[in-house]
């Protein structure tokens, strides 16, 4: 195979082996952040290396890779990462969620349900859910060890006292398999329910902090809440202006310099499929 003179998937074999061992331990301890070695990993800057490192460690020539950034396949970032793996690993790429074996994502979970055998790789900026409440790593490690998550409940309750509801709408904390508290990366809380009992394997990579964590398929993922303030997802009064979807996460976009706005699906693959189905129906 010609991979342009690079190591396969760019990383050297020892680094990949170390990442692979880390990934296996992450799967065995759902929701727990497994630290990995200090080895230097030269990676192109500005992409968020965590997701790329995980993808580089798992990807093989038979994989089909989809990369999304905020739900879209066509941002500069998503295109660059797809090209990077097409070049260094010789893999096929796709924008169709159902055709991908690996979906690398920044900040969304696809709207189409994932299936068994697929792997969703999240790019994670900050892995520790307790970090903004407790800056010391030694302390947060102890809290995870003892399952002492009271400070997070206090924090969410303060939210309710101040705003009348839990105001956190992105990177909303979850508890995995009734044990570890986990940060789902800055996905909208709209996507949180998709993590629960998902048939796909979910892997999370944090490059700067060198942590990998995982949610195995068919694993319970519960968004934190209270009996009197149950977890709720975002909802919209509008439907998607392009495809009419009433069940997808919508972005508000400005359509003219007079400030006209419309709401459209954040997931471009989902939206395009629905638009194609509509025009086919209209033609029939």
């Amino acid at each position: 195979m010609n991979t342009g003179g690079y190591n396969f998937a760019y990383l050297d074999e020892q680094t990949k082996r170390m990442l692979r061992r880390t990934i296996l331990k992450a799967v065995a301890i759902p929701g727990y952040q497994v630290p990995f070695g200090d080895r230097e990993m030269p990676m192109p800057h500005g992409w968020g290396t965590g997701g790329i490192q995980v993808t580089a460690a798992i990807i093989g020539p038979d994989d089909v890779l989809k990369v999304i950034d905020q739900g879209a396949d066509d941002t500069t970032n998503a295109v660059s990462i797809r090209k990077f793996f097409a070049k260094t690993a010789g893999v096929a790429t796709t924008t169709r969620t159902e055709d991908a074996t690996i979906v690398q994502t920044r900040h969304r979970i696809p709207e189409k349900p994932l299936h068994e055998g697929q792997i969703l790789v999240y790019q994670v900026p900050i892995p520790e859910p307790l970090r903004w409440l407790e800056p010391r790593e030694t302390e947060t490690r102890k809290m995870h060890a003892l399952s002492e998550y009271g400070i997070m409940h206090v924090r969410l309750y303060e939210d309710i006292a101040t705003h009348g509801r839990i105001a956190t709408s992105y990177d909303y904390p979850v508890q995995v398999n009734d044990r570890y508290m986990m940060r789902p990366s800055p996905i909208p809380k709209f996507d949180n329910p998709k993590m629960d009992m998902n048939p796909a394997l979910q892997l999370f990579g944090a490059g700067r902090e060198k942590r990998i964590y995982a949610v195995p398929p068919y694993t319970k993922v519960k968004s934190l809440d209270f009996d009197d303030y149950p977890f709720e997802v975002q909802s919209w009064d509008q439907s998607c202006a392009l495809c009419g979807a009433g069940d997808s996460f919508l972005d508000e976009i400005i359509t003219s310099d007079r400030g006209d706005r419309m709401f459209v699906c954040s997931d471009s693959d989902y939206c395009q499929d629905r638009q194609a189905a509509r025009s086919k129906e209209a033609a029939e």
Binding site: N7, F8, K16, I58
Partner: peptide, 12 residues
């Protein structure tokens, strides 16, 4: 390289 990757994926 390639055999290690495939075996790892099976283990995963």
């Amino acid at each position: 390289q390639l055999d290690s990757q495939l075996v790892f994926r099976t283990a995963l």
